[in-house]
């Protein structure tokens, strides 16, 4: 059986909120290392990969591999009933029909309990190899969100060019063009404001801004976001969570014109 207790419901609320517009029905794959999810959007352009390590829960117990097929719209409805600060416990039997969610207020004696019916989801799973990326950029997640939103006002695509000069986000649209260039930057007092560019070779790739803006819904999960790029492979956008847990998005590049 599965029993996984989160100190704050907020974490799961934010994760689900960040991915629910991208993917609808997902398997939450539970085993002794934690709870993982991988799902592609309907157009097969973007993929979300979540890992909540067992260390992110206290306690965490999962004796067997259990796949919880959950509709994220349903999960969102139930999670709305949880306060951000509530303790959240997920429970399921070994061959479950439902997943049970318990929300406990730390301040009062209120306990609420919900069951969500599970679905059989036959999901395509992609093998994503460990990749040595040509460029890795760590930057404030709010800055990345701002850049994507600002450029989307002009165009549906953005080119991300990384060179030893820095990283340049540029777009061209009907009304004109725009770009934002960031250079490496260290803020000793506020490390969350750091921009770190690790480059082994110059990279230039073009991506759909609609998807990037969607990924940025995860910004409240982490002060920093990591962008990993290599020529002619999908972009990795990673929001690191506590205890080596993460929320990652992969986005296929655009080609030619």
């Amino acid at each position: 059986m599965l029993e996984a207790r989160l100190e704050q419901a907020n974490l799961l609320k934010k994760v689900v909120d960040a991915i629910k517009d991208l993917v609808q029905d997902c398997n939450f794959d539970c085993n002794d290392s934690g709870i993982a999810l991988q799902a592609m959007d309907n157009s097969h352009v973007a993929l979300v990969s979540m890992m909540l390590k067992s260390e992110s829960f206290s306690p965490f117990r999962c004796d067997r591999n259990i796949a919880l097929g959950i509709n994220l719209t349903s999960l969102t409805k139930v999670l709305r009933a949880a306060q951000n600060e509530d303790i959240l416990t997920l429970k399921a039997e070994d061959a479950p029909d439902v997943v049970n969610l318990v929300f406990e207020s730390a301040e009062s004696d209120r306990i609420s309990e919900y069951d969500i019916k599970l679905m059989d989801i036959d999901q395509e799973h992609l093998g994503i190899p460990e990749t040595e990326y040509a460029a890795t950029i760590s930057m404030p997640s709010a800055e990345f969100q701002r850049i994507c939103r600002d450029l989307m006002a002009l165009s549906e695509s953005v080119s991300i060019e990384c060179s030893k000069e820095g990283v340049k986000f540029a777009c061209q649209g009907d009304i004109g063009s725009g770009s934002v260039t960031l250079r490496s930057h260290t803020n000793v007092d506020k490390p969350e404001m750091n921009v770190e560019i690790d480059l082994t070779e110059p990279v230039s790739l073009t991506f759909s801004l609609k998807y990037l803006v969607g990924f940025c819904k995860a910004s409240s999960l982490s002060g920093q976001v990591k962008l990993c790029l290599s020529n002619e492979v999908p972009l990795l956008v990673e929001y690191a969570l506590a205890n080596n847990s993460y929320l990652r998005f992969y986005l296929a590049p655009k080609i030619g014109d």
Partner: peptide, 14 residues
């Protein structure tokens, strides 16, 4: 507008 790639062109289904 550049053409949009598909993720399955890069990663194999398992």
């Amino acid at each position: 507008t550049p053409l949009q790639n598909d993720l399955s062109e890069f990663y194999t289904a398992i």
